[in-house]
Design a binder for these strands. Structure first.
Lengths: 225, 225
DNA sequence: AATTAATTACGTATTTATACGTAATTAATT
DNA sequence: AATTAATTACGTATAAATACGTAATTAATT
């Protein structure tokens, strides 16, 4: 019987080392490569065609969800298992939308970890905890209704804030701590324009002040990527 | 030859598991207990008297630096090795001030990890990378001058912002996203008082807006603890 | 080409926060 | 008891941001 060939993507070496030793102690999992950012993960998946990519979400250069979405193009048979500290529904749903086959928290035991890998290799989805079936079924129910029901997507979990390209640009600068004046100068636009965008962004994201905004982006970084 | 007895403190099981397996694969290190927060770490150190506590900084209930400082009282012979993602000088200096014997980044190899443990067990300090000697020597130079030089502590690394008790209280509420009015209501004080405190706090911390403030506290959480 | 979405920017109004200085009162330290 | 530090709060002034609405222009989509 062949081993399950996996690639690990996490920006911390010690975490990758720890996971590698954890999994290979089982004997049926082989870590064939490691990546410290999403882009490196995609490149190595393309090159090595592993069975499963195990990926953190928050990584430099390209995050784990984007890398997951990218896999369809470079290695359609490779599946992704997300391993994250975040248990927000938005993250979980977003990972499903990006095509991930599983989602585990970093609190996961070795036993469950290996069980998840086996399950995914057999073509199933694997989401840890009680929220797994609820979320996956909820997501499937949302999509079973066809295109008519896509207008109701906001009623379940909000994952698309409909932030335009320009809004993301300005949001990034706000996130970095720039004042409206600084942003106006940088983009060569009127400060009134920036204020308008800013108002629209805050409304779309449902936040009331800059602190909430920063927290929201910290927890959902795909908003600006 | 006895093994080095260590306790691991990190709020993520998978990290603790990974480190445990990593270290015990060497044979000369034995993980005798684990803790998921600073308080639990202190309690287990008190009970089990390990050689070394390996601790993350950011943990719930009590952070790793506070736990380090607490060890003198409960197990004077136990040394602490901080294992963190943060390489800010403030963190490193603060760990020394709390009595830590070493500081490694989570980017550390197994070899260096074990080397650090051996070194610490022999009574030495162990700080990873080129910054280690510079920082430790800089810190010792600061203290070698005696009490007369303590007035110059701000010229090297700013670790004490001299935030008063009341200021910390208000800072916590600002950090949580409350407006000045909300804070004034909650504390039963004039909004003008809150504004005054807020101005003083920002000045002490050297930040120009709320975004910078949040980032600073995120990277130096002891400011408000 | 028509329609829709995004971008730009203003009017009007208000709120909120920043900035500096002064000073009385209270609490803590010497 | 005297001194120092912290807390409270105001005057004065200004800057910055929030909030809502309107609308022209440009870009993208159908």
């Amino acid at each position: 019987m062949d081993t399950i060939k996996v690639i690990l993507a996490d920006d911390h070496v010690i975490v990758r080392n720890g996971i590698k030793i954890l999994l290979e102690s089982e004997g049926e999992v082989e870590v064939i490569a490691e990546a410290s950012n999403g882009q490196e993960a995609v490149d190595k998946v393309k090159q090595l065609k592993p069975d499963i990519l195990i990926s953190d979400i928050r990584m430099p250069i390209m995050n784990g969800l984007e890398a997951t979405a990218e896999l369809k193009k470079v290695s359609p048979d490779t599946k992704t298992l997300i391993l994250s500290m975040h248990d927000d529904e938005e993250y979980i749903i977003k990972s499903v939308e990006c095509g991930a086959s599983g989602y585990l928290l970093k609190d996961t035991t070795k036993e469950e970890f290996v069980k998840a890998l086996r399950s995914i290799l057999e073509g199933h989805k694997y989401f840890s905890g009680d929220i797994s079936d609820v979320l996956v079924n909820g997501y499937l129910n949302k999509n079973t209704g066809g295109s008519a029901s896509s207008s109701d997507s906001g009623t379940m979990v909000k994952t698309d804030y409909h932030i335009t390209k320009r809004e993301k640009q300005i949001l990034q600068l706000v996130y970095e701590g720039h004042s409206n004046k600084e942003i106006a100068d940088e983009l060569g636009k009127s400060i009134r324009t920036i204020e308008t965008h800013r108002f629209n962004i805050m409304k779309k994201l449902g936040v009331g002040n800059i602190t909430e905004l920063i927290r929201k982006i910290d927890s959902e970084p795909y908003i600006i990527s």
